[in-house]
Design a protein around this nucleic acid. Structure first.
Lengths: 103, 103
DNA sequence: CACTTACGTTAGCTTAAACTAACATATTGG
DNA sequence: CCAATATGTTAGTTTAAGCTAACGTAAGTG
């Protein structure tokens, strides 16, 4: 799950994830969207994302189509929801304290 | 929100977040938990986490107490839930396709 | 006020990760 | 098979981020 965070924590990769969120995209088209980043660099980033399970790869002829793989984010999503719960727990604790004071 | 990801994407900082999840901890106690990381290094990590809004700092005499700040994870949590929704959308689309074929 | 405790800060070094350039592979069309 | 297209791979360089050592600060203690 930490691999997920590391894969996301790079500006180019983060941008790629947004691109392949809704529609499947070939590597070349993804690379064209970037002004200052070369195609090989994008290719390497795609590999990192694929290894982390955050995108899927499908070959169609000479092309390789990439797409977001939502399941890959599951564990991290759960962790953040746990963190969020800490907030609710505190609100609950504060409310109980308040209740005690009143009685 | 990208700052959130970058702050989390470092092993020591990630470990610190777990530590201060439930209880408030002074900087020194946090540093002691690590075998191979010095106190100044931990101090720098705490600063990054604080700047990203992921932990709160409270001063008590000469001590500084740190604690998880759940609100800081809100935006990232929302993003991951959006990513997750992509999965549900596809399942829905697939189900509709199936339905069409049947009729 | 001097001393200690608990931390933070900064300049400079070190290392890991991203990038580039050149080359490799795989599919399609003629 | 040859050429073109689309993409991946790798060795070596560059750069950003973490670390260390030394110093600075602020609150409590005798």
């Amino acid at each position: 799950m930490f691999e997920t965070i590391q894969a996301m924590a790079e500006p180019t990769r983060f941008a790629i994830l947004q691109m392949v969120r809704r529609r499947e995209m070939p590597a070349g088209e993804i690379a064209l969207k970037f002004k200052a980043i070369t195609r090989p660099a994008v290719s390497q980033h795609l590999r990192v994302l694929k290894d982390a399970g955050l995108v899927s790869e499908r070959r169609q002829g000479t092309r390789r189509l990439y797409r977001l793989r939502p399941e890959g984010f599951g564990p991290l999503k759960n962790l953040l929801e746990d963190f969020w719960d800490s907030k609710l727990e505190r609100l609950k604790a504060a409310a109980e304290k308040q209740e005690k004071r009143r009685s």
